[in-house]
Design a protein around this nucleic acid. Structure first.
Lengths: 177, 177
DNA sequence: ATATAATCATTCGTACCCAAACGATATAAA
DNA sequence: TTTATATCGTTTGGGTACGAATGATTATAT
């Protein structure tokens, strides 16, 4: 990240240029399109890259890894909170936990006093997995930001949090209608 | 976006704080985790919000919308290029095009001189759809960036392009092994 | 004590996501 | 002309993604 070699200003790709011209022609051009579409592209590339280079050999999808990561951080956690922290629906989590349990990485335990609820515990194999896999994934994270300047890095962190907060605010507003 | 009301610095969420402590304890803390994980969270929220508020009523998924968007920009485009521009695999595109054709939004035409290739054309219904739907989606895009300062906006656009370029560079490098 | 409402995780149905394999087609090499 | 290689879109298999519905359980109201 503290890579001070000369940076040329990133240019529009052909696709971006074509999209820009089209949106100008229909009167809707705005550069927020670039932020949003490039954010989606970036997540898609990181997901595929990390699955192919790191996760696949451990029978993990990107989302499986994310779920394991949250479980690793909390050690044991209720499914409702786990789904929220992993950013997925509870119904999706049920399927992913099935897959992870199949590989022996975690287990589901009924709640001690509320039979509706389930606690997810990480297993020894799961801990071993995360200790081995997370540094490799972390290298990809470092790789992704390696060409940002310090200022870009700090500003992007803040911007993402701001946009997240903005969207969460709107999501809450629309859900209470 | 040119919203100059006082901004407090975005704070770490509970989940971020917990993750930070955990990573410090295993000697792997780095704030690139925040950039990457928040990028994923942001795309998830935008996808869900736009599906629920806009796309669902037109029988469109977020990816279906993205594909229609690229077709709308190019008017007719080969599937290989369409998949690349939409950021999805060709096998995924085949399924999505089936869905979009079912709704009458586009059609696949065999290439005039190379029977292996397929051209996708937008239909009248597809054009009408995009003219109606894109402004609504665009409002969500504007919404997402509405609380960024001008500097944050410009810097984030550049950062995303830089990270995309970095990851594309590494993807190419690893694919030629 | 009973009835009603709320909450939980799971199931169901549908759509997306991808790599690998496949069959068809085009191009290059012998 | 024949054979080998490359490329295309689709199919296959397995996993993820979500909202709505479901059954079980807990909490609240009467």
């Amino acid at each position: 990240m503290d890579n001070f070699k000369n940076k040329t200003h990133p240019q529009l790709s052909d696709a971006e240029e074509r999209a820009k011209q089209h949106l100008i022609s229909v009167g809707l051009y705005s550069r927020s399109v670039s932020i949003i579409s490039n954010t989606f592209r970036l997540t898609s590339i990181i997901r595929n890259f990390s699955e192919n280079q790191v996760l696949k050999e451990f029978n993990l999808s990107f989302s499986g890894f994310t779920v394991m990561w949250v479980i690793w951080v909390w050690r044991d956690i209720e499914t409702a909170k786990l789904a929220k922290n992993a950013g997925i629906a509870k119904s999706t989590l049920t399927g992913i936990l099935k897959t992870l349990e199949k590989h022996g990485y975690c287990k589901r335990i009924p709640h001690s006093s509320d039979a509706r609820r389930v606690i997810v515990h990480i297993s020894k194999a799961g801990e071993d997995l995360m200790e081995k896999i997370f540094p490799k994934f972390h290298k990809i994270e470092e790789m992704a930001v390696s060409d940002l300047t310090s200022d870009e890095f700090e500003t992007t962190i803040d911007s993402l949090r701001t946009m997240l907060h903005t969207m969460e605010k709107f999501t809450k507003k629309n859900n209470s209608k």
